[in-house]
Design a binder for these strands. Structure first.
Lengths: 215, 215
DNA sequence: TTAAACTATTTAACTATTCGGTTAAACTGT
DNA sequence: ACAGTTTAACCGAATAGTTAAATAGTTTAA
Protein backbone atom coordinates (compact mmCIF):
# COMPACT_ATOMS: atom_id res chain seq x y z
CA UNK A 1 0.00 0.00 0.00
CA UNK A 2 1.19 3.45 -0.85
CA UNK A 3 2.46 5.57 2.02
CA UNK A 4 -0.39 7.96 2.82
CA UNK A 5 -0.08 11.56 3.83
CA UNK A 6 -0.87 11.63 7.54
CA UNK A 7 0.73 14.98 8.36
CA UNK A 8 -0.64 17.63 6.02
CA UNK A 9 2.14 20.13 6.67
CA UNK A 10 4.84 17.71 5.58
CA UNK A 11 3.65 16.76 2.13
CA UNK A 12 4.97 13.47 0.88
CA UNK A 13 2.54 13.05 -1.97
CA UNK A 14 3.12 14.48 -5.42
CA UNK A 15 0.13 16.84 -5.57
CA UNK A 16 1.16 18.59 -2.36
CA UNK A 17 4.72 19.03 -3.56
CA UNK A 18 3.39 20.59 -6.75
CA UNK A 19 1.00 22.91 -4.93
CA UNK A 20 3.70 24.04 -2.56
CA UNK A 21 6.08 24.84 -5.39
CA UNK A 22 3.32 26.52 -7.36
CA UNK A 23 2.40 28.72 -4.42
CA UNK A 24 5.95 30.01 -4.15
CA UNK A 25 6.42 30.59 -7.86
CA UNK A 26 3.04 32.27 -8.42
CA UNK A 27 3.68 34.57 -5.46
CA UNK A 28 7.09 35.51 -6.78
CA UNK A 29 6.27 35.93 -10.45
CA UNK A 30 2.52 36.39 -10.78
CA UNK A 31 0.25 34.43 -13.07
CA UNK A 32 1.73 35.35 -16.43
CA UNK A 33 5.27 35.39 -15.10
CA UNK A 34 4.98 31.85 -13.83
CA UNK A 35 5.94 28.98 -16.13
CA UNK A 36 4.74 25.43 -15.75
CA UNK A 37 8.23 24.11 -16.39
CA UNK A 38 9.61 26.04 -13.44
CA UNK A 39 6.91 24.75 -11.10
CA UNK A 40 7.61 21.21 -12.22
CA UNK A 41 11.33 21.72 -11.75
CA UNK A 42 10.93 23.24 -8.27
CA UNK A 43 8.54 20.45 -7.30
CA UNK A 44 11.00 17.87 -8.58
CA UNK A 45 8.52 16.21 -10.91
CA UNK A 46 8.08 15.90 -14.62
CA UNK A 47 5.81 18.45 -16.22
CA UNK A 48 3.47 15.75 -17.47
CA UNK A 49 3.06 14.57 -13.87
CA UNK A 50 1.95 18.05 -12.97
CA UNK A 51 -0.73 17.93 -15.64
CA UNK A 52 -1.71 14.41 -14.62
CA UNK A 53 -2.04 15.33 -10.96
CA UNK A 54 -3.69 18.72 -11.15
CA UNK A 55 -4.51 20.01 -14.58
CA UNK A 56 -3.77 23.09 -16.62
CA UNK A 57 -2.34 26.41 -15.47
CA UNK A 58 -5.71 27.95 -14.63
CA UNK A 59 -6.71 25.02 -12.48
CA UNK A 60 -3.38 25.00 -10.71
CA UNK A 61 -3.62 28.70 -9.99
CA UNK A 62 -7.18 28.36 -8.74
CA UNK A 63 -5.99 25.65 -6.35
CA UNK A 64 -3.21 27.85 -5.05
CA UNK A 65 -5.50 30.85 -4.63
CA UNK A 66 -8.05 28.78 -2.81
CA UNK A 67 -5.42 27.29 -0.53
CA UNK A 68 -4.00 30.73 0.27
CA UNK A 69 -7.10 32.91 0.46
CA UNK A 70 -9.88 30.45 1.14
CA UNK A 71 -10.53 28.90 4.53
CA UNK A 72 -9.79 32.17 6.27
CA UNK A 73 -13.41 33.24 6.30
CA UNK A 74 -14.80 30.65 8.66
CA UNK A 75 -12.04 31.10 11.24
CA UNK A 76 -12.55 34.84 11.29
CA UNK A 77 -16.30 34.66 11.70
CA UNK A 78 -15.96 32.22 14.62
CA UNK A 79 -13.19 34.05 16.44
CA UNK A 80 -14.82 37.44 16.07
CA UNK A 81 -18.11 36.06 17.34
CA UNK A 82 -16.44 34.92 20.57
CA UNK A 83 -15.52 38.47 21.55
CA UNK A 84 -18.07 40.63 23.32
CA UNK A 85 -17.25 44.29 22.86
CA UNK A 86 -16.90 45.78 19.36
CA UNK A 87 -13.34 46.88 20.17
CA UNK A 88 -12.42 43.30 21.04
CA UNK A 89 -14.17 42.02 17.94
CA UNK A 90 -12.20 44.39 15.74
CA UNK A 91 -8.95 43.41 17.43
CA UNK A 92 -9.84 39.75 16.97
CA UNK A 93 -10.54 40.43 13.31
CA UNK A 94 -7.13 42.02 12.87
CA UNK A 95 -5.46 39.22 14.82
CA UNK A 96 -6.97 36.65 12.49
CA UNK A 97 -5.78 38.48 9.38
CA UNK A 98 -2.24 38.86 10.69
CA UNK A 99 -2.22 35.23 11.79
CA UNK A 100 -3.37 34.18 8.32
CA UNK A 101 -0.59 36.20 6.70
CA UNK A 102 1.98 34.80 9.13
CA UNK A 103 0.86 31.29 8.32
CA UNK A 104 0.87 32.04 4.61
CA UNK A 105 3.83 34.22 3.67
CA UNK A 106 2.76 34.17 0.03
CA UNK A 107 -0.57 35.82 0.77
CA UNK A 108 0.48 39.47 0.50
CA UNK A 109 2.05 39.09 -2.92
CA UNK A 110 -0.80 37.07 -4.29
CA UNK A 111 -3.48 39.36 -2.89
CA UNK A 112 -1.76 42.49 -4.12
CA UNK A 113 -1.42 41.11 -7.61
CA UNK A 114 -5.00 39.98 -7.54
CA UNK A 115 -6.19 43.43 -6.48
CA UNK A 116 -3.97 45.05 -9.11
CA UNK A 117 -5.56 42.80 -11.73
CA UNK A 118 -9.07 43.63 -10.51
CA UNK A 119 -9.48 40.03 -9.38
CA UNK A 120 -9.30 38.83 -12.96
CA UNK A 121 -8.12 35.35 -11.98
CA UNK A 122 -10.22 34.95 -8.83
CA UNK A 123 -12.36 31.82 -8.76
CA UNK A 124 -15.94 32.30 -7.62
CA UNK A 125 -15.38 30.37 -4.40
CA UNK A 126 -12.62 32.66 -3.25
CA UNK A 127 -14.55 35.78 -4.21
CA UNK A 128 -17.29 34.53 -1.95
CA UNK A 129 -14.81 33.95 0.88
CA UNK A 130 -13.50 37.49 0.59
CA UNK A 131 -16.98 38.94 0.57
CA UNK A 132 -17.74 36.93 3.67
CA UNK A 133 -14.71 38.32 5.51
CA UNK A 134 -15.73 41.79 4.47
CA UNK A 135 -19.23 41.37 5.78
CA UNK A 136 -17.85 40.37 9.19
CA UNK A 137 -15.98 43.65 9.33
CA UNK A 138 -19.00 45.66 8.24
CA UNK A 139 -21.08 44.06 10.97
CA UNK A 140 -18.48 44.82 13.62
CA UNK A 141 -18.23 48.46 12.52
CA UNK A 142 -21.98 48.74 12.40
CA UNK A 143 -22.35 47.23 15.86
CA UNK A 144 -19.70 49.52 17.29
CA UNK A 145 -21.32 52.55 15.77
CA UNK A 146 -24.72 51.67 17.20
CA UNK A 147 -23.19 51.13 20.62
CA UNK A 148 -21.52 54.51 20.40
CA UNK A 149 -17.91 53.31 20.57
CA UNK A 150 -16.97 53.78 16.89
CA UNK A 151 -17.42 56.84 14.75
CA UNK A 152 -19.52 56.67 11.62
CA UNK A 153 -17.02 55.26 9.18
CA UNK A 154 -16.82 54.29 5.53
CA UNK A 155 -16.51 50.49 5.79
CA UNK A 156 -14.54 50.09 2.59
CA UNK A 157 -12.09 52.72 3.74
CA UNK A 158 -11.55 50.97 7.07
CA UNK A 159 -11.18 47.69 5.27
CA UNK A 160 -8.64 49.23 2.93
CA UNK A 161 -6.81 50.61 5.93
CA UNK A 162 -6.59 47.28 7.73
CA UNK A 163 -5.73 45.15 4.72
CA UNK A 164 -3.52 47.75 3.12
CA UNK A 165 -1.53 48.32 6.26
CA UNK A 166 -0.98 44.64 6.99
CA UNK A 167 -0.12 43.58 3.44
CA UNK A 168 2.07 46.57 2.73
CA UNK A 169 3.97 46.33 5.96
CA UNK A 170 4.55 42.62 5.50
CA UNK A 171 5.92 43.14 2.02
CA UNK A 172 7.79 46.41 2.36
CA UNK A 173 9.50 45.84 5.66
CA UNK A 174 11.54 42.82 4.45
CA UNK A 175 12.59 44.79 1.37
CA UNK A 176 13.90 47.47 3.66
CA UNK A 177 15.77 44.94 5.79
CA UNK A 178 17.38 43.45 2.71
CA UNK A 179 18.53 46.99 1.95
CA UNK A 180 17.55 46.38 -1.64
CA UNK A 181 17.07 50.02 -2.53
CA UNK A 182 16.48 51.95 0.67
CA UNK A 183 19.50 54.01 1.65
CA UNK A 184 21.13 53.21 4.96
CA UNK A 185 20.31 56.66 6.34
CA UNK A 186 16.63 55.76 6.26
CA UNK A 187 17.06 52.39 7.88
CA UNK A 188 19.04 53.99 10.67
CA UNK A 189 16.14 56.31 11.46
CA UNK A 190 13.61 53.52 11.49
CA UNK A 191 12.26 52.03 14.67
CA UNK A 192 11.52 48.38 15.08
CA UNK A 193 8.00 47.33 15.81
CA UNK A 194 7.70 47.25 19.57
CA UNK A 195 5.21 44.43 19.74
CA UNK A 196 3.18 42.19 17.53
CA UNK A 197 2.04 43.62 14.19
CA UNK A 198 -1.57 42.73 14.97
CA UNK A 199 -1.43 44.62 18.26
CA UNK A 200 0.17 47.69 16.69
CA UNK A 201 -2.29 47.80 13.80
CA UNK A 202 -5.15 47.23 16.23
CA UNK A 203 -4.05 50.17 18.37
CA UNK A 204 -3.83 52.50 15.38
CA UNK A 205 -7.12 51.48 13.81
CA UNK A 206 -9.07 51.50 17.08
CA UNK A 207 -7.76 54.91 17.95
CA UNK A 208 -8.56 56.17 14.46
CA UNK A 209 -12.21 55.24 14.65
CA UNK A 210 -12.67 55.73 18.40
CA UNK A 211 -15.80 57.69 19.20
CA UNK A 212 -14.53 59.24 22.44
CA UNK A 213 -12.53 62.01 20.87
CA UNK A 214 -13.97 62.31 17.41
CA UNK A 215 -13.39 65.67 15.79
CA UNK B 1 7.72 71.00 -41.38
CA UNK B 2 6.51 68.31 -39.05
CA UNK B 3 3.83 69.22 -36.54
CA UNK B 4 5.60 69.51 -33.22
CA UNK B 5 4.27 68.59 -29.81
CA UNK B 6 3.41 71.89 -28.12
CA UNK B 7 0.92 70.54 -25.57
CA UNK B 8 2.51 67.64 -23.64
CA UNK B 9 -0.83 66.23 -22.47
CA UNK B 10 -2.10 65.81 -26.00
CA UNK B 11 0.66 63.67 -27.46
CA UNK B 12 0.87 63.89 -31.20
CA UNK B 13 4.28 62.35 -31.52
CA UNK B 14 4.83 58.64 -31.83
CA UNK B 15 6.85 58.07 -28.67
CA UNK B 16 4.18 59.66 -26.48
CA UNK B 17 1.44 57.59 -28.07
CA UNK B 18 3.47 54.47 -27.36
CA UNK B 19 4.19 55.40 -23.75
CA UNK B 20 0.57 56.22 -23.10
CA UNK B 21 -0.59 52.88 -24.47
CA UNK B 22 2.17 51.05 -22.63
CA UNK B 23 1.19 52.64 -19.32
CA UNK B 24 -2.36 51.39 -19.65
CA UNK B 25 -1.42 47.88 -20.75
CA UNK B 26 1.32 47.39 -18.14
CA UNK B 27 -1.05 48.56 -15.40
CA UNK B 28 -3.72 46.17 -16.55
CA UNK B 29 -1.63 43.09 -17.24
CA UNK B 30 1.65 43.49 -15.38
CA UNK B 31 5.09 43.11 -16.89
CA UNK B 32 4.92 39.49 -18.02
CA UNK B 33 1.27 39.71 -18.99
CA UNK B 34 1.94 42.59 -21.33
CA UNK B 35 2.77 41.88 -24.95
CA UNK B 36 4.60 44.23 -27.24
CA UNK B 37 2.14 43.53 -30.05
CA UNK B 38 -0.77 44.73 -27.94
CA UNK B 39 0.99 47.95 -27.00
CA UNK B 40 1.80 48.58 -30.65
CA UNK B 41 -1.79 47.87 -31.63
CA UNK B 42 -3.24 50.14 -28.91
CA UNK B 43 -0.79 52.87 -29.84
CA UNK B 44 -1.73 52.49 -33.48
CA UNK B 45 1.80 51.93 -34.68
CA UNK B 46 3.79 49.07 -36.13
CA UNK B 47 5.73 47.00 -33.63
CA UNK B 48 9.02 47.82 -35.33
CA UNK B 49 8.27 51.51 -34.82
CA UNK B 50 7.92 50.82 -31.13
CA UNK B 51 11.37 49.25 -31.07
CA UNK B 52 12.78 52.06 -33.20
CA UNK B 53 11.34 54.78 -30.96
CA UNK B 54 11.95 53.34 -27.51
CA UNK B 55 13.71 50.02 -27.35
CA UNK B 56 13.05 46.63 -25.88
CA UNK B 57 10.45 45.64 -23.30
CA UNK B 58 12.63 46.39 -20.29
CA UNK B 59 13.42 49.88 -21.53
CA UNK B 60 9.79 50.58 -22.29
CA UNK B 61 8.72 49.41 -18.84
CA UNK B 62 11.42 51.49 -17.17
CA UNK B 63 10.13 54.53 -19.05
CA UNK B 64 6.57 53.86 -17.91
CA UNK B 65 7.59 53.31 -14.30
CA UNK B 66 9.62 56.48 -14.27
CA UNK B 67 6.77 58.46 -15.79
CA UNK B 68 4.29 57.11 -13.24
CA UNK B 69 6.32 56.97 -10.04
CA UNK B 70 9.08 59.47 -10.61
CA UNK B 71 8.64 63.22 -10.33
CA UNK B 72 6.37 62.84 -7.30
CA UNK B 73 9.20 63.27 -4.85
CA UNK B 74 10.07 66.87 -5.53
CA UNK B 75 6.48 68.10 -5.37
CA UNK B 76 5.92 66.39 -2.03
CA UNK B 77 9.05 67.78 -0.42
CA UNK B 78 8.16 71.31 -1.51
CA UNK B 79 4.50 71.20 -0.51
CA UNK B 80 5.19 69.62 2.87
CA UNK B 81 7.87 72.20 3.61
CA UNK B 82 5.34 75.01 3.15
CA UNK B 83 3.20 73.80 6.05
CA UNK B 84 4.10 74.85 9.58
CA UNK B 85 2.65 72.43 12.09
CA UNK B 86 3.44 68.70 11.88
CA UNK B 87 -0.28 67.90 11.54
CA UNK B 88 -0.51 70.18 8.52
CA UNK B 89 2.65 68.71 7.08
CA UNK B 90 1.26 65.21 7.36
CA UNK B 91 -2.03 66.25 5.79
CA UNK B 92 -0.11 67.94 2.97
CA UNK B 93 1.88 64.74 2.49
CA UNK B 94 -1.30 62.73 2.17
CA UNK B 95 -2.86 65.31 -0.12
CA UNK B 96 0.10 65.05 -2.46
CA UNK B 97 -0.08 61.27 -2.61
CA UNK B 98 -3.81 61.25 -3.33
CA UNK B 99 -3.36 63.98 -5.94
CA UNK B 100 -0.61 61.93 -7.57
CA UNK B 101 -2.84 58.88 -7.71
CA UNK B 102 -5.74 60.92 -9.07
CA UNK B 103 -3.51 62.30 -11.78
CA UNK B 104 -2.14 58.84 -12.54
CA UNK B 105 -4.88 56.23 -12.36
CA UNK B 106 -2.41 53.52 -13.30
CA UNK B 107 -0.26 54.15 -10.23
CA UNK B 108 -2.02 51.84 -7.75
CA UNK B 109 -1.84 48.79 -10.00
CA UNK B 110 1.74 49.38 -10.98
CA UNK B 111 2.89 50.09 -7.42
CA UNK B 112 1.11 47.06 -6.02
CA UNK B 113 2.63 44.76 -8.58
CA UNK B 114 6.01 46.30 -7.99
CA UNK B 115 5.72 45.77 -4.24
CA UNK B 116 4.49 42.21 -4.80
CA UNK B 117 7.55 41.58 -6.96
CA UNK B 118 9.88 43.08 -4.33
CA UNK B 119 10.65 45.92 -6.70
CA UNK B 120 12.36 43.53 -9.10
CA UNK B 121 11.81 45.77 -12.12
CA UNK B 122 12.40 49.10 -10.39
CA UNK B 123 15.03 51.27 -12.06
CA UNK B 124 17.55 52.90 -9.72
CA UNK B 125 16.18 56.39 -10.40
CA UNK B 126 12.71 55.47 -9.21
CA UNK B 127 13.97 53.64 -6.16
CA UNK B 128 15.74 56.83 -5.20
CA UNK B 129 12.52 58.82 -5.69
CA UNK B 130 10.60 56.48 -3.41
CA UNK B 131 13.25 56.61 -0.72
CA UNK B 132 13.13 60.39 -0.91
CA UNK B 133 9.36 60.43 -0.37
CA UNK B 134 9.79 58.11 2.57
CA UNK B 135 12.39 60.29 4.18
CA UNK B 136 10.00 63.24 4.03
CA UNK B 137 7.46 61.24 6.01
CA UNK B 138 10.03 60.12 8.54
CA UNK B 139 11.09 63.71 9.11
CA UNK B 140 7.51 64.84 9.63
CA UNK B 141 6.82 62.05 12.11
CA UNK B 142 10.06 62.77 13.92
CA UNK B 143 9.29 66.46 14.09
CA UNK B 144 5.79 65.82 15.38
CA UNK B 145 7.06 63.46 18.03
CA UNK B 146 9.63 65.95 19.27
CA UNK B 147 6.98 68.67 19.43
CA UNK B 148 4.77 66.36 21.44
CA UNK B 149 1.86 66.17 18.97
CA UNK B 150 2.49 62.66 17.60
CA UNK B 151 3.01 59.46 19.54
CA UNK B 152 6.20 57.50 19.14
CA UNK B 153 5.45 55.55 15.97
CA UNK B 154 7.05 52.98 13.73
CA UNK B 155 7.65 55.02 10.58
CA UNK B 156 7.41 52.09 8.22
CA UNK B 157 4.12 51.08 9.77
CA UNK B 158 2.69 54.58 9.33
CA UNK B 159 3.98 54.65 5.78
CA UNK B 160 2.36 51.29 5.10
CA UNK B 161 -0.85 52.59 6.58
CA UNK B 162 -0.95 55.70 4.40
CA UNK B 163 0.14 54.07 1.16
CA UNK B 164 -1.78 50.87 1.77
CA UNK B 165 -4.99 52.68 2.55
CA UNK B 166 -4.83 54.98 -0.46
CA UNK B 167 -3.79 52.37 -2.99
CA UNK B 168 -6.17 49.71 -1.73
CA UNK B 169 -9.12 52.02 -1.53
CA UNK B 170 -8.46 53.36 -5.01
CA UNK B 171 -8.30 49.86 -6.47
CA UNK B 172 -10.93 48.03 -4.44
CA UNK B 173 -13.63 50.64 -4.41
CA UNK B 174 -14.16 50.62 -8.21
CA UNK B 175 -14.28 46.83 -8.18
CA UNK B 176 -17.07 47.05 -5.66
CA UNK B 177 -18.93 49.59 -7.76
CA UNK B 178 -18.66 47.39 -10.81
CA UNK B 179 -20.23 44.67 -8.66
CA UNK B 180 -17.70 42.28 -10.10
CA UNK B 181 -17.82 39.82 -7.24
CA UNK B 182 -19.16 41.61 -4.18
CA UNK B 183 -22.70 40.58 -3.39
CA UNK B 184 -25.33 43.29 -3.51
CA UNK B 185 -26.09 42.93 0.19
CA UNK B 186 -22.63 44.26 0.99
CA UNK B 187 -22.84 47.16 -1.40
CA UNK B 188 -26.14 48.17 0.12
CA UNK B 189 -24.57 48.41 3.56
CA UNK B 190 -21.66 50.48 2.36
CA UNK B 191 -21.48 54.20 2.88
CA UNK B 192 -20.08 56.56 0.33
CA UNK B 193 -17.06 58.59 1.22
CA UNK B 194 -18.37 61.82 2.68
CA UNK B 195 -15.56 64.02 1.48
CA UNK B 196 -12.28 63.84 -0.33
CA UNK B 197 -10.23 60.66 0.09
CA UNK B 198 -7.20 62.67 1.18
CA UNK B 199 -9.21 64.42 3.89
CA UNK B 200 -10.71 61.17 5.17
CA UNK B 201 -7.38 59.36 5.25
CA UNK B 202 -5.79 62.39 6.89
CA UNK B 203 -8.41 62.39 9.64
CA UNK B 204 -7.93 58.70 10.37
CA UNK B 205 -4.15 58.76 10.36
CA UNK B 206 -3.85 61.94 12.40
CA UNK B 207 -6.25 60.60 14.97
CA UNK B 208 -4.39 57.30 15.07
CA UNK B 209 -1.06 58.87 15.92
CA UNK B 210 -2.39 61.82 17.94
CA UNK B 211 -0.52 62.29 21.21
CA UNK B 212 -3.35 63.93 23.17
CA UNK B 213 -5.03 60.77 24.35
CA UNK B 214 -2.53 58.01 23.67
CA UNK B 215 -3.12 54.76 25.48
C1' DT C 1 11.55 76.84 -58.17
C1' DT C 2 12.86 72.18 -58.87
C1' DA C 3 14.89 67.92 -58.64
C1' DA C 4 18.24 65.10 -56.86
C1' DA C 5 20.45 63.36 -52.70
C1' DC C 6 20.01 62.33 -48.15
C1' DT C 7 18.09 61.37 -43.49
C1' DA C 8 14.56 59.97 -40.34
C1' DT C 9 10.63 57.18 -39.72
C1' DT C 10 7.43 53.55 -40.59
C1' DT C 11 6.10 49.12 -42.29
C1' DA C 12 5.19 44.03 -43.71
C1' DA C 13 7.28 40.00 -43.34
C1' DC C 14 10.26 37.10 -40.98
C1' DT C 15 13.07 34.47 -37.25
C1' DA C 16 14.22 32.25 -33.08
C1' DT C 17 12.69 30.98 -28.88
C1' DT C 18 9.74 30.25 -25.18
C1' DC C 19 6.02 28.01 -23.21
C1' DG C 20 1.47 25.66 -22.37
C1' DG C 21 -0.03 21.41 -23.23
C1' DT C 22 0.09 16.30 -25.26
C1' DT C 23 1.49 11.53 -26.28
C1' DA C 24 2.96 7.10 -25.99
C1' DA C 25 5.94 4.39 -23.72
C1' DA C 26 8.08 2.96 -19.27
C1' DC C 27 7.82 2.11 -14.53
C1' DT C 28 5.66 0.70 -9.92
C1' DG C 29 3.15 -1.77 -6.73
C1' DT C 30 -0.82 -5.25 -6.19
C1' DA D 1 -2.07 -9.09 -15.84
C1' DC D 2 -3.48 -4.65 -14.52
C1' DA D 3 -4.39 0.06 -12.70
C1' DG D 4 -2.07 4.07 -11.18
C1' DT D 5 1.72 7.04 -11.83
C1' DT D 6 5.78 9.02 -13.95
C1' DT D 7 8.67 10.23 -17.80
C1' DA D 8 11.28 11.73 -22.21
C1' DA D 9 10.22 13.51 -26.25
C1' DC D 10 7.43 16.11 -28.88
C1' DC D 11 3.95 19.79 -30.93
C1' DG D 12 1.93 24.10 -32.13
C1' DA D 13 0.80 28.63 -30.90
C1' DA D 14 2.34 32.83 -29.00
C1' DT D 15 5.66 36.27 -28.65
C1' DA D 16 10.10 39.22 -28.14
C1' DG D 17 12.90 40.99 -31.27
C1' DT D 18 14.98 41.76 -36.40
C1' DT D 19 15.44 43.03 -41.23
C1' DA D 20 15.25 45.08 -45.50
C1' DA D 21 12.50 47.74 -48.15
C1' DA D 22 9.15 51.60 -48.62
C1' DT D 23 7.75 56.19 -47.34
C1' DA D 24 7.97 60.93 -45.68
C1' DG D 25 10.39 64.88 -44.71
C1' DT D 26 14.66 67.90 -45.24
C1' DT D 27 18.63 69.75 -47.28
C1' DT D 28 21.50 70.81 -51.25
C1' DA D 29 22.53 72.57 -55.70
C1' DA D 30 21.54 74.42 -60.24
Amino acid sequence: MKKRNTHPDKPDNTADKILKAARAVFAQNGYSGTHMDEIARRAGVNKATLYYQIGDKDTLYANVIHQVLGNIAQGIAETVAQAEKPEDKLQAYINCLVAAVDKNPEMPSIMMREVAADGAHLPQVVAHDIASVLSVLINVLDDGRKKGVFTDTTPFLVHSMIMGTILFYKKVSPIKDRQAFIPASLIARDRKLKGDLAVEVGKLVLKAIDKERSS
